[in-house]
Simulated scan of single mutants.
Amino acid sequence: MNVRRWAWAGQDRYPGFCLTLVRGRTPATVAAQLGADALRELTLAEAEEAHPISAPGALLRLGAYDGGVYCFEDRAPIANRTLAIARLSQGTRLLQVTKSGDGMVIVRDVVDGRTAELFEPGGAVYADGPLRPRVALLLAGHSRVVAALAVVADEAGVDLERATLEGRLATALSMRDEPARG
Rank of each mutant, 00 (worst) to 15 (best):
P52G: 06
D177V: 15
F17I: 03
I106W: 03
D66W: 00
L39C: 01
V3H: 09
G67S: 04
L44W: 03
V22W: 01
R114Q: 13
G67T: 00
H142A: 12
L165Q: 02
S143D: 06
L42G: 08
S143Y: 01
V3Q: 10
P27C: 05
A153K: 00
L83R: 14
A28D: 09
V105A: 03
F17S: 06
A50D: 02
Q96Y: 00
I78C: 13
P52I: 06
V151H: 11
A9L: 05
E155G: 02
D37N: 07
T98L: 07
T171N: 01
G101W: 14
P133F: 07
L44V: 03
A124W: 07
V69E: 10
R4F: 08
G16T: 04
F72M: 06
T20R: 01
H51S: 10
R168F: 01
L169P: 05
S89N: 00
A38R: 14
G35T: 12
G67A: 02
A47G: 14
G63I: 06
P133W: 06
R81T: 10
V22D: 02
A50I: 00
F119H: 02
E41H: 01
V158A: 13
R23D: 11
E41N: 03
I85R: 13
D177Y: 12
A47H: 11
